[in-house]
């Protein structure tokens, strides 16, 4: 379960950033008063164009960032007051997540299992299961630097899931991956749902959202433009395709704010 209440995050801008964004304001609201609830056993999709605030929201959930105001509860724990408990309950994976090249998959997954406070026996058992399902055994003692993108992605998945997190956060998980490799991620997301985990993932790829999600939020300029069940969204659509509907909603928002 993830419960987000009136969440706002502002960043201070330095001279360079102001120039880049073409603004004279000293601050920018990356997330602007959003309210969301992600329930267990359901897949929540955060959809939005680049710079909408998706990554910031997910980082706030993962306690990498601290909210300016508002609150987030993950699996019953407050992200500010109980950061450690929250991090123990979540798995976090992004499309650009790197791995430690000089370690082997075995060492890497063991490391994160230990950091999550797992005891040796349950860590070994869990690792064996994951390596088996993901077919990692054949390369588990090679240096990660020598692995292909597909292999690395599997290791990333094992790393994310080693402590059997209740809540899984995916930030554009398939960005930069080919369809075959992306398929591993899609399978993982489905499996998480089947296991009754709470899943939130961000994307700007409509087909992926269509394929997976139960609940949908469209975010633009840090604000929620749509929040509801995917089935309702489909029935309310003005345009024929999901992509066009997404573009319409974002463009409408742009014209009303201007």
């Amino acid at each position: 379960m993830i419960e987000i209440k009136d969440l706002t995050k502002t960043f201070n801008l330095n001279k360079q950033q102001r120039k880049k964004l073409g603004t004279r304001a000293g601050q920018i609201k990356a997330v602007d008063g959003i309210n969301l609830t992600c329930r267990p056993g359901r897949i929540f999709s955060l959809l939005g164009p680049n710079g909408a605030g998706k990554t910031t929201t997910l980082r706030l959930i993962a306690t990498i960032l601290q909210p300016t105001s508002g609150s987030i509860r993950v699996a019953g724990h407050d992200t500010v007051k109980e950061g450690r408990a929250v991090r123990n309950k979540i798995g976090f994976l992004t499309g650009t997540t790197g791995l430690y090249d000089r370690l082997t998959p075995d060492e890497l997954v063991t490391y994160f299992g230990r950091l999550n406070g797992m005891d040796a026996t349950s860590l070994e058992r869990r690792k064996r299961d994951l390596f088996h399902t993901l077919e990692i055994f054949s390369f588990s003692s090679k240096r990660i630097a020598e692995l292909s993108t597909g292999m690395r992605q599997k290791v990333s998945i094992a790393r994310t899931m080693i402590h059997d997190p209740e809540v899984v956060v995916f930030d554009e998980p398939t960005a930069g991956l080919d369809v075959i490799t992306a398929e591993h991620i899609i399978d993982l997301i489905r499996q998480c749902k089947a296991d009754g985990k709470t899943v939130i993932f961000s994307s700007h790829i409509m087909s992926e959202v269509d394929l997976l999600c139960d609940d949908l939020a469209i975010i633009h300029d840090g604000q929620i433009l749509y929040n509801g069940e995917m089935s309702d969204f489909r029935s309310q659509m003005v345009n024929g395709s999901l992509t066009q509907e997404f573009i319409r909603i974002v463009n409408d928002a742009k014209t009303t704010t201007r």
């Binding site: 408990a85 979540i90 997540t97």
Partner: peptide
Amino acid sequence: RGTIETILTSP
């Protein structure tokens, strides 16, 4: 290497 987020989301 893009590993900073990973270590920061560990407990």
